[in-house]
Amino acid sequence: MKWVAVALLAAFPAQAMAVDSAFIRSLVIPGSGQAQKGHYTRAAIYGGTAILSGFGLIISEVYYLEAVDKLDTQIDTYAAYQETLDDGGVVSIDDLEETYAQMVADHDTADKRLAWRNGFLIAFAATYAVNLVDVLISKPYEPDHQERLSVEAVPSGLRITKTFRF
């Protein structure tokens, strides 16, 4: 454990490792630490991405669990047919074939929904991680006193300049 702490301290500058209030905010709500530091566009991007990926994660998890339930039902039914045959009972070939085909189809569905769920999970985790790293290494926004919207005369007419900050 001590070596892990030493490695972390060596990997990041001491300033970056300092746990400030912006970091705590981003830990609770992605993007809120960036907002505190004045980076509103980045805050909106992190917050929006976290909400979208988190929502997608919940929905895809629900759909995945639903597919797993259906698959488990088919697996149990098919296993029961095998037990019935082992015990000397009679099983219809139609039931055997339909259940097997349904089990394969449900397995494919579960595979696809698992891929979606993992995609959202990775997106959510990546957003969270990048959000935390970003809030650690970014400095508070300092206005440079430059006009964000300016109009100046040029030989061909007027030039309108809009400055964005991220």
Partner: peptide
Amino acid sequence: AACSEHGDVLPPIDV
């Protein structure tokens, strides 16, 4: 949740 995996397809009953 990331660790959870669904069951595999049973081998076809050989009849």
